[in-house]
Design a protein around this nucleic acid. Sequence first.
RNA 1: GCGCCGUUGGUCCAGUGGCAGGACAGUGGCUUCCCAAGCCACUAGCCCGGGUUCAAUUCCCGGACGGCGCACCA
Length: 578
Amino acid sequence: MTERSDLAELAKRRGFFFPANEAYGGTAGLYTYGPEGAALKRNIEAVWRDQFVRAAGHMEVESPTVVPEAVFEASGHLETFDDMIVECAECGATHRADHLVENAVPDVDDAEAFAPRRIADLVADHDMACPSCGASLAGRPVDEFNLMFGTNIGPGSSSPGYLRPETAQGIFVEFPRLKEYAHNQLPFGVAQIGRAYRNEIAPRRALVRVREFTQAELEHFVDPEFDEPPIAPVADVELPLYGAEAQRADAGGTETYTVREALDAGVVGSDWVAYYLAESLAFYERIGIDMERFRYRQHLPGELSHYAADTWDAETELGGDWIEVTGFAYRSDYDLRKHGEYAEAEYTVFRQYDEPKTVERATVDPDMSYLGPTFGDAAADVGEALESLAARDRSAFDGDAVTVAVGEDSYTLPVEKTGFAVEERTESGEHVTPHVVEPSFGVGRLVYSVLVHRHGTDEVDGEERTSLALPAEVAPTTVAVFPLMTKDGLDDRAGEVAAALRAAGLAVSYDDTGNIGRRYRRQDEVGTPYCVTVDYDTLEDDTVTVRERDSTDQTRVAIDDLPGAIDRLVGGATLAEL
RNA sequence: GCGCCGUUGGUCCAGUGGCAGGACAGUGGCUUCCCAAGCCACUAGCCCGGGUUCAAUUCCCGGACGGCGCACCA
């Protein structure tokens, strides 16, 4: 509790994040990142990009946030995001109206597709009762609730669209082109860092559940039969796992498995998921997540997404609660298959065989000059039926005549009019729909977790101190420069030092207000790992003090060597090693 | 969405049917000032709308926002 309210106060006061549009009363679920927060978020994204794009050799794209409706028809989001809600007049409980109807009316199992009007009628006709308190729900309005933000693309309402609820679809939709850039070779990965939107019913807990958020997603396209992750290098990585079994037993405890053990014991079902659980561990550590307050939790069967097979979440502990910061899903071929069905383009990759294969294939070439006059309107359908029959059961063509069914009717014709033949064909490969392994990171939740985990108080010379022990790599400011006093040229000299450090590419703050102690504390609060002070000795010997945030220790460094020294410190060197 | 509680300078709080207070922070000045020091000065606030009242930041109603619980969470 305190942990979070203290942080909310710090976040507002020091500019990490704050409720957006407060001058107009505020908007629930929308936050603005202030200067410190925007820098921290950007740095965390940079680490992610470094690891999951650059180091992994993957591609990164940027797709629009406004997406036409057809995409979400294919992806399944339109259906699964559109819930119908009925509220009980007695107890105020809200229920999924479509689920109530499905449970109460035996021959209805797709109520989700019904109009709200019809659902309301069904509720009234069957005099359904509130599952919570038993009061009648007849006559209660059925509200439609869609978690996607709707909009119109262009003037009028002829082209409905939605703000994307996940960045992933932007990658899936563009797969036909993306595969070209990957030279039509699996496996390859495409990443995207961007905004996504969900019209949450109840935004909660600062950055944890918001209506607009940043995702960092990697879609790793793999050949389901032949591609395997490089398990060997990560086989001994220890994973803190909270599996479905453990959750059912309500043990609450996390068990540590190596990647190898987890796979051998079947705790993690997918070797690809296991691989990314291991890979990501280093990432969380690098950005400053407290690994004592971190676990991987397996989704229970009931909470799996409409597209996912086995899914694990990375969770961080915040004030006694566990929150999801990453979802690791094996999405199989669901998304590409759906887009392949709904869209015009090819969502497959051609996989060449090692050796071309010779296969026998039954084909037909119906004599339409016979079928046309004979079967009239049905001729085309009969032709198609013959084609599928030949592929299915070539023995049907063994006799003199063959019979096919078209709808209710059946048609018989001489085999010689079907152009039936068995050909030998050489096939050099086949089209496969790639499977997708998806690590999907919630950047805002990571920022928030890092802030909570790194935020603490200690004591320096008997005074309580608040500090943010951020890793140097993600800290908004790497080094702050102060003149001991703003006189005798100390401030001019400090300005030169700051400029030199900026020229060296570092994120530098300059501060000459208040006294020196206050300035140190100020930097401690926003997580600046190093402070440089120009004092009277500087004027004599061109050295400055470098002070370390976590220990508050200092050492003197020559100004000429300062950029290099800071680099070495960021790289892990200690003050004594300078 | 429902219920309970809350909303006062940048932040955290006190308080009042009649000129609104403190602490911290911030800004300027003084002080050879290395860990929130001292002194002086300054800046800055009652969430919004309606009602009751001579008068509302205060009481009542509604809304927005926030916290918690329930529901929801692809």
